[in-house]
Nucleic acid binder design. Sequence first.
RNA 1: GGAGAGGUGGCAGAGCGGUCGAAUGCGGCGGUCUUGAAAACCGCUUUACCCGCAAGGGUAACGGGGGUUCGAAUCCCUCCCUCUCCGCCA
Length: 424
Amino acid sequence: MLELNFLREHRDEAEQRLTKRNVDAKTLLDTARSLDDDRRSAQTELDARLAEMNGLSRTIGELMKSGKKDEAETARARTTELKATTAALKEKLDNAEKALHDHLCTIPNAPSAKVPVGRTPEENTVVMEEGAKPTLHDGAKPHWELAEQYELFSLDLGVKLTGAGFPVYSGQGAKLQRALIAFFLDKATEAGYREIIPPHMVNADSAFATGQLPDKEGQMYHATVDGLYLIPTAEVPITNLYRDEIVDTAHLPIKMVGYTPCFRREAGSYGAHVRGLNRVHQFDKVEIVRIERPENSYAVLEEMVEHVKGLLRALELPYRQLLLCGGDMGFSSAMTYDMEVWSAAQQRWLEVSSISNFETFQSNRLKLRYRGEDKKPKLAHTLNGSALALARIVAALLENNQTPEGIRIPKALQPYTGFAMITK
RNA sequence: GGAGAGGUGGCAGAGCGGUCGAAUGCGGCGGUCUUGAAAACCGCUUUACCCGCAAGGGUAACGGGGGUUCGAAUCCCUCCCUCUCCGCCA
């Protein structure tokens, strides 16, 4: 949720930035402005009446104490009308606040200055590309066929247990999965991130605070009996650790990392491009999260990208970095880099990481503040990024490293897998 | 799941219908004293919103929501959470 003060005080900048989303920024902001005016006038009026009421009550109390029963009765009679008035004004204010809040919830984050204009993924900027795309031997297979050949994971078994899109990893496939998680966690903790193992379900307050609700309600699995949501990413529980907190400036920056499975309904996406591990309902991911002072957040975003690049290099995967255009960015983000790896058998790029600066969009909902030099609470900036998402990394690893003799494991990973080659 | 107790400021802990945003202690910040430190003493120490150029004024918040009342941290209802005992269990 964008800050109201920002929208009021930097109206032109807000409109200019928002326009990159291809939304009708002018109308959105005009509406916000007028709803806020309504709210303010309602509050001003209510406060005045309440002050009057408080004065009367005090008077009545004093009259009662000094035994002036009659005068107290007279004063009490006067409160009846005032009560009706305040009740009506209170309702007016509540409605105005709700209308404003609901409206603000529909406004996406304002893209930062560097974000390119564009509507579709084709208009994202390729920032850089690194690593040679491998040439595969004849008879090379896509990862889902390799999985079958080496018994690494099964989607059919997942169907039996759960439904489509729930892979069952086994044997060297399971070990590879565990190795990647451990490798990513170790790299992050080496880089100074504190490891967190959060709950895999969150309440509605948490889902709202990081922006999943109400925007992506249909994307989350919902355990309705208990009102809980399965997390679509570790970002949700980890960032919410700091909901309703005013952190001491000495504690910044806050760097956290967590591994969790991620659950996504992915309603309505089927077809050839979602075969195998390309898009599944449950996948493993290691997520890095940061809470930063505003002046540092964009440098930190670059630092996080460098961290992810380090992982991809260690895994010897050809990758590229995209800067998402306004039309392709997530609702809550002010700027997002996507990292994609080359999947050699499928001959396509797979997104394995999304690294975003949310500026104060999340912290405004989280009420996550820090105390600045002037001792006043200020909203912090939040950032997060996948480091990394497992399923597609596995897909690329299997495809790119396949040989007639087996599938080669990158050196950096071998201490974790305990084997250098996946074989039958 | 059953029975009971309780949720108050950074923490501990009073208040149980009126001037209580809230005693007191601890912690924290500033000052006096000191060569320095400690001790002692003095002062300050929540957040959000509204009006105002400002100075300043006002409103709200004692787990969440609702109710009773001229007036609620205090009474009632409801939900959530914590603790103790019992049951169940990895």
